[in-house]
Structure formats: C-alpha cells, structure tokens
Computed example of a mutant assay.
Amino acid sequence: MGDVQVTRNDEQTRYEARVDGELAGFAEYQLTDILVVFTHTEVEGAHEGQGVGSALARYALDDVREQGTRRVLAICPFIKGWIDRHPDYAPLLYAGTQG
C-alpha cells in the first residue's frame, strides 16, 4: 500500500483519502456557524484495515483545530469512536457531545 494522502474537498463537503491517486475513503461533514458536523465516514473495501480511516480522522480533526473557528459534532460513529480512542482531540468536541 502507498502513502495515504488526505485533502479537504470543500465542493463536496468532505475530506478525501487517496492511495496511489485512487479514492480510498472519505469523511463527509456539514458546516454551521459554530460547528463542523461529521456525518459519515467510508473506506473502500480494498483499503480497510490499512489506516485510511485513521488518516482521515486525524487530518480532518487537525484541520478543524488549525482553523480554530468551530467545534466538532461527531454524529458519525467512526469519528466519535476515533476521538474516544484519542482523548487529546476531545477538546474539539462541542460541549453537548462530551461524556
């Protein structure tokens, strides 16, 4: 497997992971004035178990942190679980989602 390259695709409101130029997965989001709402994450079957989902989550959450203007509402079970396993990202969560 090649390196996972993640980018933000504002036009389709999702973060995309590519391996060797091929779309390997994505994390969809919606924006409000104060939130980035992660709604769905999907990894292509051929790339499951290869760190694509983790690369997506880390890049997306680092991007939210870097922008510093919104909090995260993790409706997507994958993103929520990833944050639970990486508590250093918990401060990004919207107060209503912690606990």
Rank of each mutant, 00 (worst) to 15 (best):
V37C: 00
V37I: 15
A27F: 00
G51A: 09
Q50N: 11
A55S: 14
F26R: 10
Q50S: 09
A27H: 03
R18N: 08
Y29I: 03
S54I: 02
G51E: 10
G49L: 05
T7M: 14
E42N: 12
L23K: 12
E16A: 10
G21W: 07
E11C: 04
G45A: 15
V19A: 06
G53K: 05
A24K: 08
F38H: 08
A17F: 01
F26V: 08
V43L: 08
E42D: 13
E28Y: 00
E28R: 10
E44A: 15
D20P: 07
D33S: 14
E48S: 05
I34F: 10
E42T: 12
E44S: 14
Y29L: 07
Y15N: 02
A24R: 08
I34E: 15
Q50L: 14
Q50G: 02
A17K: 08
V52M: 09
L23S: 09
D33M: 09
Q30V: 08
S54R: 13
V37L: 10
N9K: 06
V37K: 02
H40C: 07
L56T: 05
T32P: 12
G21F: 09
V36I: 02
E11P: 00
H40I: 06
H47A: 02
A17M: 10
G45N: 10
T7G: 04
E16N: 01
H40E: 07
R18V: 03
T41A: 03
V52Y: 08
R14A: 06
G49N: 10
D33N: 14
E11Q: 14
S54D: 13
T39E: 05
V52I: 12
S54M: 01
A46W: 00
Y29G: 09
H40V: 00
V37F: 01
I34R: 13
Q12K: 14
A17N: 11
D20H: 12
A17C: 06
R8N: 15
G51N: 09
Y15V: 00
V19F: 04
V36H: 13
E44N: 11
T32A: 06
D20M: 03
V37A: 01
A17D: 08
V36R: 11
L31F: 01
V43A: 04
D10L: 10
Y15F: 15
E11W: 03
R18K: 15
Q12W: 02
R58L: 03
A57L: 04
A27P: 03
D20Y: 08
T7Y: 01
E48Q: 15
R18I: 06
T7A: 12
A27W: 00
A57E: 02
V43R: 00
G25T: 06
R8P: 03
T13W: 02
A17R: 04
Y29R: 03
N9C: 08
L23I: 10
L35Q: 12
D20W: 02
G51F: 03
H47M: 07
E48P: 01
G49E: 05
F26W: 12
R58P: 00
